[in-house]
Design a protein around this nucleic acid. Structure first.
Lengths: 242, 242
DNA sequence: ACCTGAACACCGTTCAAGT
DNA sequence: ACCTGAACACCGTTCAAGT
């Protein structure tokens, strides 16, 4: 969006020398915007070049290929969390407050980039021997130091890292998938399969789903995130003292 | 693997009329095997045809396109769980036993197809208005009926469904990602970045990660799955009575 | 009935050539 | 220094034609 605006502002006037020069950052940001607006499969070197008013081949000056571009997209998004004081500040009011801030920070960027976020889980990890193989060793370091500094043993800190990671991944993937289904599949929802239809869109054989449709459709994401996070923190507290 | 063997067995002899005729099932199974062996990006209509001893265009007799083939792959894998009595049998010894069987059944097929499993999370959902948008309404039905039959209120059953789903997704995605990193990225691990190197593969700035490397590398997946599942079930028990 | 050849539009990527 | 044209190998997909 920022990149689009930059380019558009210049495309109006004509002086060719005032054309905003490409840079890695501009290419990556344009890729993020393009994925959010059109979806990952639509992100093509040629189309991205077109958006930037340039031939596809010019992009190779700034990124070394499509795969590397996707890695850079993930790094960019992860980088946004580093600009978030809530995320990057270690434990000052105890580890529970620390993990609360961390979790909400991650959730914020996941919701800000619902169609890019799944890339974080699907790109090959930075450190393959690290389990679970999440990206960005820096986070792992931050996490572990935070917990170690507040009374966790080595083993408890590592186990807490794993539990926290899988909780965030599962919850946020489902949450952004729900968002993506909203924005990306509206054209698939023809009238006959609308949720308010008398048969609920071909749910003839599924009485429970059909009857509880209203509950299943409701979005309690925030509240559920809070209570699940609270429960997780209680479990981690057990890890810490036990 | 099954499909490969079928074809190979016939390629030896020559009578052209005994050539195993293609079928949707054979194409889908070959696709599953190909993804497991070579990874998703390597799955190409042309290459899959080659594996089956046929031109790519012939595949379109049996599947209507690549996207639909991937959907069929997901359906095939989901279908494997339906053949699992542990999964498909409703609650007979209470809802906790039911969910234990369900969770382990899903985990079993996830580990059996580590490189296909992430497709379940990334394919567009069958019922976009269902949150979370997991595939296969039949499971949701099974899950809800099971819990409703054992004392859960409507609201508690739906909330339990969401908690259970995000738990399974998060845990299993990380677990299969760890497996994928094992088999798929061995070539990326040059000697200098091996975990046993003195600097742990460029971990200079990350003392905690570096020091706890052995703990982070260990695979406690089974044990962690069990304890996390147990904790989740305790939480769901609270939902049920409260 | 089932498979193929040829064709089309579209990819990612390279590199010598332009300005 | 930065971008482009032309080219290459490879996609998914269609369809008339073969057997």
């Amino acid at each position: 969006m920022v990149a689009d605006a930059d380019v558009a502002a210049v495309v109006g006037d004509d002086p060719p020398s005032s054309r905003v020069p490409l840079s890695t950052a501009i290419v990556v940001m344009a890729a993020v915007d393009h994925i959010e607006e059109r979806g990952l499969p639509e992100l093509t070197m040629r189309r991205l070049g077109q958006v930037l008013g340039v031939e596809a081949m010019s992009l190779y000056r700034h990124v070394s290929g499509r795969e590397e571009l996707l890695d850079a997209v993930v790094d960019h998004i992860v980088g946004e969390m580093d600009d978030d004081d809530d995320v990057v500040t270690g434990p000052t009011d105890g580890w529970q407050d620390f993990l609360q801030r961390l979790a909400h920070g991650v959730r914020r960027v996941a919701l800000a980039h619902p169609r890019c976020f799944p890339l974080i889980a699907s790109r090959p990890p930075e450190a393959p021997w690290l389990r679970p193989p999440l990206r960005c060793v820096r986070w792992v370091e931050l996490f572990l130091q935070g917990l170690l500094a507040d009374g966790f043993s080595d083993e408890a800190a590592v186990e807490a890292y794993r539990a926290f990671t899988s909780f965030l991944l599962g919850h946020l993937l489902l949450e952004v998938a729900a968002h993506g289904a909203d924005v990306g599949l509206l054209d698939v929802l023809e009238a006959g399969s609308a949720p308010e239809g008398p048969d609920g869109g071909g749910l003839a054989g599924f009485p429970a789903v059909s009857r509880l449709r209203h509950l299943l459709t409701e979005d309690h994401a925030v509240a559920e995130f809070e209570v699940a996070l609270e429960t997780l923190l209680d479990r981690l507290a057990g890890l810490r003292s036990g």
